[in-house]
Every structure is written in C-alpha cells, then in structure tokens.
Simulated scan of single mutants.
Amino acid sequence: MAHAWKCSGLRWAADGPELAWEGGRRSALTWGKRVAFGVADGGVRTCVGARGHACPVRSAVSGRSTGARCEECARLDRAHSVAADTIADDPRPYHVYLAWFGPGMTKVGITAEERGSARLLEQGAVCFTWLGVGPLMAARRTEELLRAALRVPDRIPYADKRAVRSGLPGTEAERAAEIRELHARAVGLGGWPESLRAEPCQPVDHVRVFGLADLPAPAGVVAELVAGGAVGGRLVAAAGPDLHLETGGGVVVLDTRLMTGWGLIPVDTEELSVPVREFRRATGVQDGLF
C-alpha cells in the first residue's frame, strides 16, 4: 500500500499556490497541472489539533468540516486567534484593509503588517487596498468604526465568493471601483484613532494571480472526502483555499480545507469518486434571463 500523506492545506507563496504537507514538504501548483489523490481505504478523518499541537485524543471529525478540528481543539484555536478579540498585547503593527470579492461583496479586516498580502490571498480577495496601519487595538477600533459607519461586514461566506468568480467584471478599474469609493468615504470619517496612520488607496488585483480570467463556471463543488474516494483533475484556477479542477464532468471546486485530517495517497485519475454537490450562484446573482 502506498504511503499516506497528511495535507496541511493550501499556502500562498511568492510564486503562487502550494499544497503543504506534514513534515514541511510543499507541492507547487501551476495552471494545467494534474492534481490527483485518493483517500486511504478504511481511513478515518482525525482532528488536526490546535496552535501547532496534536489533538490529545485524535478525535474523529466530520468529512464536511472545513476546520477539521474537534470541539475542544476548535475552541483552543479560536481563543488564541486575533479574530477572537482575546489578544490585546500584541506589539506588532497591523494593517486595516478593504477586500473585494465580487459585486456588492466588500469586507473590512485587519492583518499583521509583517504578513503583507498573505491574508488577502488566503481569503480569495479578488482585489484589495490598505486603509491604514498602527497598533492592534487602534486597528480593531478602526475596523469597528468602518463596519458601523459604512455597513461593511468583516466576513463574507466562502460559498458567496465562489459563486461570482466566473463572472467578474473584465477590467481592473471596474473591479476596484467599490473599494475606491469605500476608501474615500472611510478617510472622510471622523473618529479614527490618532495612532493609526491612514494609507492611500492603491488597489491590488489578484485576477491574474488566481487564474480567474475566462474562468469556466463550475459544474459542482466537492461536498466532502470519503475513505476509498479519489479526486483528480487539471488545475485551471485557485483562490483562497479553493482549487478549480477541470474534470471529465466539467470544472469542480475543491476546498482544500476538506483534505486536512485524512491520510492521502497518490492515484492516477482525472475523475471524482467523492460526493459532489451542485454548484449554485449566490443569492442575488442572476442565473439567466428567466
């Protein structure tokens, strides 16, 4: 039997997306590359642990979970995250940003300045701009100010992001229009913390980085992996944690977070033998003339 690998998820490097594996190995992903793997027959998906520590009881987790963590490890992981608002003494400077994922889908967020644009790539932001930089608590207060004053959310569901990727506006100017308008409104607001330095609107576009130009509409989305199942296809695009794979039945989206916790083995296939659900556009996106 082939040696089983444990995937740590999709990472975004300077040269593009990579699949990370336990032990430090990385597999670079390029457009047109065949992506194929099987799930060890009889295997069970186990909790990936929290904050770099293994799950003490190696709990079994659902195949549909994108977090691949048991309840206790999920609690520990969230308790030590910046997003949980439980860390107040982080001395690092933080960026406040506006990220755009499609028409009517812009969010505000914060990320450590030292991470650069990695967080935006991980979220699948089609384009973004910085708003300001400063201490963590000042960045948090600014994020809250913009959410309340501009009614901009801090989260957008992944399903909604996927739903519009194959029908984005064709030019960078069109894609940047919403964040330019919101940036102008944001800098005009009163109440910004004095310790946060505002930054000019300089949109960064990721369509080429993600391979989204002329992206075919997906036929389906992998719902979960199962023991003995397999996934295979040619990579046509990648955004956030998602791989868009061209298969014999059309383009199918694979959320690589579903790969974690399983023992995966190499296979030679360009077909899928795992549950796939029908691809649906986000609410409010017109599906056709009628």
Rank of each mutant, 00 (worst) to 15 (best):
M1P: 03
H3T: 13
K6E: 12
C7W: 00
L10Y: 05
L10D: 03
R11M: 08
R11D: 12
R11Q: 12
W12E: 03
G16I: 05
E18R: 14
E18F: 14
A20Q: 01
A20C: 00
E22F: 07
R26G: 03
K33L: 14
V35R: 04
V35M: 02
F37K: 03
D41S: 13
T46G: 11
G52H: 04
G52C: 04
H53L: 14
H53R: 13
V57A: 15
A60Q: 14
G63K: 00
G67R: 09
C73V: 11
A79T: 02
V82S: 12
A83R: 15
A83H: 15
D85I: 09
D85Q: 15
D89I: 10
P93K: 08
L98G: 00
A99C: 06
W100V: 05
W100E: 07
G104P: 04
M105D: 01
M105V: 01
T106N: 04
K107H: 10
K107D: 01
R115A: 10
R115T: 04
R119S: 05
L120W: 11
L120Q: 09
L120I: 04
L121N: 03
T129A: 05
L131S: 00
L131C: 03
G132Q: 07
G132M: 11
P135F: 01
A139R: 06
E144L: 10
R147S: 09
R147E: 13
D154S: 14
I156Q: 14
Y158V: 08
A159R: 13
K161Y: 08
R162K: 10
V164T: 10
R165H: 12
S166Q: 05
G167N: 11
G170C: 08
E174D: 15
A176L: 01
E181N: 12
E181H: 14
H183M: 05
A186V: 06
G191P: 04
P193T: 03
P193W: 02
S195Y: 07
S195H: 08
R197L: 13
E199C: 10
P200N: 07
C201Y: 04
Q202L: 13
V204S: 12
V204A: 10
D205P: 13
V207C: 15
V209S: 09
F210T: 00
G211M: 04
L212G: 01
P216S: 06
P216R: 03
A217C: 13
P218D: 00
G220R: 02
A223S: 12
L225S: 03
G228R: 05
A230V: 04
V231Y: 07
G232M: 09
L235A: 03
L235Y: 00
A239Q: 11
H244N: 11
T247H: 02
G249L: 00
V251K: 06
M259Y: 05
T260D: 05
G261K: 01
G261A: 08
W262C: 01
G263C: 08
L264N: 00
D268K: 12
E271W: 10
E271S: 14
S273M: 04
P275I: 10
V276L: 06
R280C: 09
R280T: 12
R281M: 06
G284T: 04
V285D: 10
Q286Y: 11
D287R: 14
G288L: 03
L289F: 11
